[in-house]
């Protein structure tokens, strides 16, 4: 009988925050994703890179695109995929997060992809398990693979336009518009886009801006969307929740739309090359008008599509290394 141990360096085996990666790490993933994107055009869009590995998605919140694209990414790498649904699990019997992830880990999985409503949950989980942990969204903290696929999508659009690969976002003006304070997508995107050189502006009602942006790698913060439209290369809209209106001192979502929605009129004032993005799920007619979401320069479906190769690249980065197999050891195993 052999004892298998996975040889992993500290800090390389998890993806908890974009800041784990740095510019080099981000670019390595994007380049790897290029190769995996190419695979998806093949008649048989699978590679055996992670054959024999098992990943599990452990989601304590609802999700469509993130969970599906992680699972599809794993399947395209020939990994085995398990899905944990908190609604039908022992969590309903009061099992703690720690016991849940340790139980999943004890099955012998190689990676746990976790989404949880508490900020920091993925980092905490990584201390409790031996499998790699990938943060698929922790509370209002981070959603690193979303930022990576967004960077990949921007890079794809810029490269297509210029006819050459654009790895440097220097001079690219990105507006992130909406409930930045409570958004994990915004936190990860600020880190990723700034690492690639973009100039990021946060646009939100005062009460939905972070209390402090000290140390955030951003160019500016504004509450006036209209003043930014003619100087924006990428207009990235965040999902707004009805529950936030009172906190933002706005009457309702209509008032939000009047001030912060990318309406047809506002979209017309964007430069003709400006890109429009949204992580989904969209509230059509609130943060983005339905016709705007369907414009040719709106990349929302590209974002969804690119989730697969980017997550393939992340899984491959974490799990694709050599697996060291322990010596035959009759001493240790009966």
């Amino acid at each position: 009988m052999t004892i298998e141990t996975i040889d992993r360096e500290a800090g390389r085996d998890n993806l908890l925050s974009v800041s784990d990666l740095g510019r080099e790490g981000i670019l390595e993933i994007l380049h790897q994703a290029d190769a995996f994107a190419e695979i998806s055009h093949r008649p048989m869009p699978k590679v055996p890179a992670l054959r024999g590995r098992t990943i599990v998605t452990v989601f304590f919140e609802n999700s469509t695109r993130t969970r599906l694209s992680f699972e599809m990414a794993a399947q395209r790498l020939n990994a085995d995929v398990l899905t944990f649904f908190s609604a039908t699990s022992s969590v309903q019997k009061g099992e703690s997060l720690r016991d849940t992830v340790q139980t999943v880990d004890a099955l012998g999985v190689d990676a746990i992809i976790i989404r949880h409503p508490s900020s920091g949950a993925a980092l905490q989980a990584s201390r409790w398990v031996r499998a790699s942990v990938i943060n698929a969204g922790d509370g209002q903290h981070e959603h690193p693979t979303q930022a990576l696929l967004d960077a990949f999508t921007i890079r794809e659009a810029l490269s297509r336009r210029s006819g050459q690969v654009v790895d440097d976002f220097a001079g690219l003006r990105v507006n992130i518009v909406g409930d930045v304070r409570h958004s994990r997508v915004a936190r990860s995107n600020v880190l990723a886009l700034a690492a690639l050189g973009a100039e990021v502006t946060l646009v939100a009602p005062e009460a939905l801006l972070p209390i402090s942006t000290e140390g955030w790698p951003i160019a500016r913060v504004t509450t006036d969307l209209d003043s930014t439209l003619d100087s924006t290369d990428v207009c990235y809209l965040l999902r707004i929740q009805h529950e936030r209106m009172a906190e933002a001192h706005l009457d309702d979502l209509d008032e939000y739309r009047r001030h912060f929605g990318l309406t047809t009129e506002r979209a017309a004032r964007l430069g003709k090359d400006a890109l429009i993005m949204h992580p989904g799920p969209m509230n059509r007619g609130v943060e983005i008008d339905s016709t705007v979401a369907d414009l040719p320069n709106a990349l929302i479906l590209d974002q969804a599509r690119n989730g697969v190769p980017v997550r393939m690249a992340v899984l491959f980065r974490l799990l694709g290394g050599p697996r060291t197999v322990g010596a035959e050891s009759g001493d240790l195993v009966e």
Binding site: E142, R187, P210, S212, E214
Partner: peptide, 13 residues
């Protein structure tokens, strides 16, 4: 505490 760190960490302060 509400401030630089709560904002960065996505925790209410």
């Amino acid at each position: 505490h509400e401030g630089v760190w709560s904002s960065k960490l996505g925790l209410a302060g």
